[in-house]
Simulated scan of single mutants.
Amino acid sequence: MAEIAFEAQVAAYRRELLLHCYRLLGSLTDAEDVLQETLLAAWRGLDGFEGRASLRSWLYRIATNRCLNALRDRGRRVPPEPKPPFQPPPPSRHGDVPWLQPYPDTLLVPDAEPGPEARYTAREAVELAFVAALQRLPPRQAAVLVLCDVLGYPLGEAAPMLGATPTAVKGLLQRARASLVRHRAESSGGGQHADAPEPESAQERDLVRRFADAFTADDIDTLVTLLTDDAWLAMPPAPHEYHGVAAIASFLRASAAWSAGRRPLLDPTRANGQPAFTCRLAGEPAGVIVLTLAGDRVRGITRFLILDDGFLRRFDRDVRRLSNPQWN
């Protein structure tokens, strides 16, 4: 009975805790592992919960510290770099967050009533560029920034979650804010552009459909007309990044020559609040593609080279086949 009561108490917080762990770890796989550790620790420590803080704050304290422990004890779980089956052109640069994974919109829940300290909207705080920038911060800085600027905890509440003084947390937060602005400016994408189409709007669906048509047909000439001049292509966990239309076109032509007419199947979905696709080639998983939009163009293509069909099926729950009338 006690276990049933515990499950009922924490059920409302499972999804937001998973998202919290994902923001700090950048990996859905790792976030799921740490969430299980968090719930187990909470279950074992339930007798010691004295109610001085809310149950939600207590769970966030455990989750935050479990994430920090995981980063300290295990480090970043850097996946092996995939080897392309063809000779790609030299990349424009190398990415530094190879463990980054997409997050299915079907798992998103609104952050529960963020306080007045919150600086980021729910949409901004889940975008790929934001999550990637968090990975470049020292872990405790990232934790403070998420607790205060995303979830809206005041310094006085965030400090005991980290076993620190409000003064120390204030210093961490100031450094985190300055570093985050710099990392977002330097990183690929910089988040959805201010004039990106509204999610699920007719303008967004039209642009995404035109991208899918060109991509599946290996129509590189049409595809590049859909890109902004400063567009980029990234492929975690591969470090290669291609910046600018010419560099992207060069890579896509090399890829198309290797595929030799074998057309990928793209299933529209959403990830990190952005339009996305699961991708399969000859029936086999070939990754998840997430688009970053700017106006009526595509500014960024992040193709996650994830070949685990179980991972892709997490996105299939929200899949709308391209044959769906709304995509025609």
Rank of each mutant, 00 (worst) to 15 (best):
M1S: 14
A2H: 14
I4T: 14
E7P: 05
A8W: 12
A8S: 14
Q9R: 15
A11R: 11
L18V: 00
L19Y: 06
H20F: 13
C21D: 08
R23L: 07
T29K: 13
E32W: 11
D33L: 15
W43F: 13
G45H: 03
R52T: 15
S57M: 12
Y60A: 07
N69I: 14
R72N: 12
R72Q: 13
R77P: 09
R77I: 11
V78N: 11
V78P: 09
P80D: 10
E81H: 10
P82F: 04
K83A: 15
P89C: 11
S92M: 12
R93K: 13
P98N: 04
W99I: 03
W99K: 08
L100R: 07
Q101N: 05
L108Q: 08
A112D: 12
P114G: 06
G115E: 01
A118N: 10
R119D: 12
Y120V: 05
Y120K: 08
V126K: 14
E127P: 03
E127D: 12
L128Y: 13
A129T: 04
V131A: 07
L137D: 01
R140E: 13
Q141N: 09
Q141F: 06
Q141R: 10
A142V: 04
A142E: 00
V144S: 06
L145Y: 09
D149L: 08
D149C: 10
L151Y: 14
L155H: 00
G156C: 03
G156W: 08
E157M: 09
L162R: 01
T167P: 05
A168C: 04
L173C: 04
L173G: 02
S179N: 11
L180V: 03
V181Y: 11
H183Q: 11
H183K: 09
R184D: 04
S188V: 15
Q192P: 03
A194F: 12
E198I: 10
P199A: 05
S201W: 01
S201L: 03
A202L: 12
E204M: 03
R205T: 02
R205A: 09
R210P: 00
A212Y: 03
D213P: 05
A214R: 02
A214E: 02
F215D: 06
T216Q: 11
I220L: 07
D221M: 06
T222L: 10
T225M: 13
L226V: 00
M235R: 13
M235V: 11
P236I: 01
P237D: 02
A238Q: 08
Y242Q: 04
G244D: 00
V245A: 01
A246I: 10
S255M: 15
A256I: 10
A257Q: 15
W258P: 06
S259E: 15
A260V: 07
L266Q: 02
A271I: 08
N272A: 13
G273I: 05
P275M: 02
P275G: 04
F277E: 00
C279Q: 14
C279D: 10
G283F: 02
E284P: 06
P285H: 06
A286P: 05
I289S: 10
L291E: 02
L291Y: 06
L291P: 01
T292P: 07
L293N: 03
G295N: 02
R297W: 02
R299F: 02
G300I: 01
I301L: 12
R303W: 15
F304A: 00
I306H: 08
R317E: 15
R320A: 14
L322R: 13
W327T: 00
W327N: 02
N328A: 15
N328S: 15
